[in-house]
């Protein structure tokens, strides 16, 4: 009795639907978490630039927590821990509105933000301090100098590491299956447990993950080429 590799069994009827739903959920989760991560990453960087020690400590603590606690643990804390601190109506609202998706997006986004903040900070460090001082001396405030002069350049320099973070974030969405988010890995396991075509199901998932990853990389390298700073 040899093993027959047969993709049709996992790529037809309801199983195909499950894969499609899984891919859509994975992409949606990646997008929502990514927007949150970018926003939070920039905010953290700006806070860190303010010369007030307690703020710096806060950001350092934030980054260390999110980088040193396993992501799966963070997701479980957000799903099982945080809602129980909320008042009852808020909890019910979350439970009624796909709380697992929202909480997974928050957990993934906040964790990625820690890495993104570090990447942007490296970008900012590579911009000579004189540019910031020059901007201040011609009348820009702190936010103006950062927003118009330093950050636009820093973000461009930070593009390659940011693409890396995006890829990591995309792959990490698979951890959300632990709290019942119906993303690609969750759906794959479902297909597997119905069809018992383990190898085929995961082969399909692998190819999908690879294709999307390549897509992100291609998009990243395109924007890197378009937006690269001219080096003198």
């Amino acid at each position: 009795m040899g093993y027959v590799f047969d993709l049709r069994g996992v790529l037809s009827g309801q199983y195909l639907d499950w894969f499609v739903i899984g891919v859509a959920t994975t992409l949606a989760l990646t997008c929502v978490a990514w927007c949150l991560a970018m926003a939070m990453g920039i905010i953290l960087t700006l806070i860190r630039m303010i010369p007030l020690p307690p703020l710096g400590w806060f950001v350092a603590l934030y980054v260390e927590y999110h980088r040193n606690v396993p992501l799966l643990v963070q997701i479980l804390i957000w799903y099982f821990g945080v809602p129980s601190l909320l008042p009852r109506p808020a909890r019910q609202w979350i439970n009624a509105h796909h709380g697992e998706f929202l909480l997974a997006a928050i957990a993934l986004g906040l964790a990625s933000a820690a890495y993104i903040a570090e990447d942007i900070r490296s970008g900012i460090r590579s911009i000579p301090k004189a540019q910031y001082e020059a901007a201040r001396s011609i009348g820009f405030g702190y936010l103006g100098a950062m927003g118009y002069v330093v950050l636009p350049q820093a973000m461009r320099i930070a593009i390659p590491p940011l693409i890396n973070q995006t890829l990591l974030l995309f792959k990490n969405t698979s951890l959300a299956m632990a709290i019942g988010v119906g993303e690609l890995t969750y759906r794959t396991r479902e297909v597997e447990s119905y069809t018992f075509k383990t190898f085929e199901a995961f082969a399909v998932a692998t190819v999908i993950y690879l294709l999307i990853s390549f897509g992100i990389m291609a998009l990243g390298s395109y924007s890197d080429r378009r937006l690269k700073l001219e080096t003198r």
């Binding site: 799903y79 099982f80 809602p83 129980s84 909890r91 019910q92 439970n95 709380g99 697992e100 632990a178 709290i179 019942g180 969750y186 479902e190």
Partner: peptide, 18 residues
Amino acid sequence: TVTFQDTSSAYLALVQDK
């Protein structure tokens, strides 16, 4: 259907009204 890896997670989800 919302599935979990182990009994305790599924039970906790029920306790928390998820």
